[in-house]
Design a binder for these strands. Sequence first.
RNA 1: GCCCCUGUCGUCUAGCUAGGUCUAGGACAUCGCCCUUUCAAGGCGGCAACACGGGUUCAAAUCCCGUCGGGGGCGCCA
Length: 423
Amino acid sequence: MITVRFAPSPTGYLHVGSARTALFNWLYARHEKGRFLLRVEDTDRKRSDKKFLEEILRDLRWLGLDWDAEPVLQSDRFDIYRQKAAGLVAAGRAYRDGEAVLFRVEPGRTIVVEDMIHGRITFQTDDIKDQVLVKSDGSPAYNFSCVVDDDFLGITHILRGDDHISNTPKQVLFYEALDRPAPRFGHMPLIMGADGAKLSKRHGGVAVEEYKQEGFLPEALANYLILLGWYPGQEHEVLTLEEAARMFDIKSMNDVQAKFDVQKLKWLNGEYIMRRSASALLPAIKERLAAAGLTAPSEGYLLKVVELYQVRIKTFNEFLPLADFFFRDDFLWEEEAKAALAKDESRELLRLFTARLESSGDFSPEVIEKLCRELAADRKVKAAALIHPIRAAVSGKTRGAGLFEIMELLGREQVLRRLRSAA
RNA sequence: GCCCCUGUCGUCUAGCUAGGUCUAGGACAUCGCCCUUUCAAGGCGGCAACACGGGUUCAAAUCCCGUCGGGGGCGCCA
């Protein structure tokens, strides 16, 4: 059985690149019916914070990941590392330099790593200097604690970022000195920003949390992230984690760095939003309403609004700017909407329409539309010439859901009030 | 400076392991048309790539070499 791990360092938020690493490890474990473990690399006590760890775990769960054992903390295992290091000193493989312990790297050797993603990679020990095992303050150096713990946890496969490639020969040397079998390694290319530079804030966010706040669905983010470096095949781009786990094949992972494309993420998110039932979208929408200090008149009302708009938004944050008028009278007016009411003829049409609407007892979309088209015909103008001003008066927007459905939802009183004040 | 990874449309990629079926396929983005009260959604269509230079071969996106480009590493950070 295979065992893999994700080893976050609790010194900050969960980076989307790290999230992708975690995702692929999870995918591999689930596909192989193996185990997925978490190890917390909190050896730097000054920078590590329990709060960060909790956030990271929360974000991993949010993405849909689960793990098979309680996370192991490296800060609990300092004695072990020191013991192992002392053992290497006793065996003559390491030496003390003050309080620190250094590993002696034998020159003139070639280290060959059969990488699961890149294939064979060779290194020369001449390029590697002696390695710190234990620092002067007694804490373990990264590569050493990493090896000790991966061995302790029974890790069989290490899937990590390309930035760890140069750590690999050092770690291989440690396994050898410890007389322990080394796991298989697989290094996946890093994600870059749209301009090819390191992914940063200006590319649209680096933290998983930021995407959550932007209004992305975890399923969409996870889906997008696994598409960066792995191709499930045509017709299979939109898939759940479970489907991905079933189809996953580490041999088909790409060995080329990929650029993070927010456009495609948005498209995917839009796909998820539009395919989901409106009621499933309610919690996220309610959050946005609450943040703006708004409330919906009723659950049923909100549900209908969402049904009307879920096909038109790519993220949840796009909802309110488009649909605020359903929840407040002081809604946002687009400049183009104001322009639609600027002409005297437009307001004249609006007044005539308002009068006809007032005298109608029925307020169904069909009747409103009939009234609208009749008036247009009577005045010998195109229906659009009337519809646009009405939309503007009622919503302050030039775009949105079908006007007659909007009006029915808003209700007779509210619509008439807005029409009168706009005319 | 040294070491390592890598180079197919703007982006993600299929194809490369076993060279011909590739006038290089799909998706996102973009452009146009249809639908239509608008915006979406949907349908149809267009634009768009084998980094460059050598070599091997009857034949190269696919194999080999070099150049150039992108990225990572060389911490008592992780």
